[in-house]
């Protein structure tokens, strides 16, 4: 949560979502303006500069949070529900070139066929196993156990 994204990641994100960012920024600025006006009316005497600084930070934070949201959540949803229809519609071998006007060369999409006819199993094998002899890897799950650190409210 508190971790700031690495500079390289931020760069790529901004490139990807630059359009979104512009829209979002203008929206945020509009919102900010309204808020500023409101604040100004209320307390002109207190340190306005400090408040503004805090707000600048807020807009950046909001933009980042928005981008992060864009990157993770809808992608997972799109990954799951986005390509549903393709599986059913896809027809094989129609685009294959003909040999001597009689035989048709089938060039099946290997990956897709492989998936359609692969093993029906609910097990989820580990793709990249961790090295559980390393102290830092072991520490990554330390708090899953009752012997680990407990949250304050428990």
């Amino acid at each position: 949560r508190k971790k700031l994204p690495k500079p390289s990641q931020v760069g790529s994100r901004q490139k990807q979502g630059s359009e979104n960012l512009i829209n979002e920024n203008s929206d945020i600025e509009d919102l900010l303006k309204e808020e500023e006006d409101y604040k100004d009316e209320n307390n002109c005497t207190t340190e306005t500069s400090g408040a503004l600084k805090w707000k600048e930070d807020l807009s950046r934070k909001a933009a980042e949070a928005f981008l992060r949201q864009q990157q993770t959540t809808p992608n997972l949803r799109k990954l799951i529900y986005g390509t549903v229809t393709e599986d059913n519609e896809e027809e094989d071998g129609e685009s294959g070139e003909e040999l001597g006007g009689l035989f048709r060369v089938n060039q099946p999409d290997r990956e897709c066929k492989h998936k359609a006819d692969s093993l029906d199993c609910s097990r989820f094998p580990v793709e990249a196993p961790h090295d559980w002899d390393l102290e830092e890897v072991m520490n990554s799950i330390r708090d899953c156990f009752v012997t680990g650190k407990w949250e304050d409210d428990k």
Partner: peptide, 30 residues
């Protein structure tokens, strides 16, 4: 297997799940 199951749930029952990613953050919980 679960991802395909979610797609099937959508086509058989018209149910779509709300899917939220919860990043692990700094907690040592995997």
């Amino acid at each position: 297997y679960t991802i395909e199951f979610l797609r099937h749930l959508k086509s058989f029952f018209q149910i779509m799940f709300k899917i939220e990613t919860k990043p692990c953050g700094e907690e040592l919980k995997g």
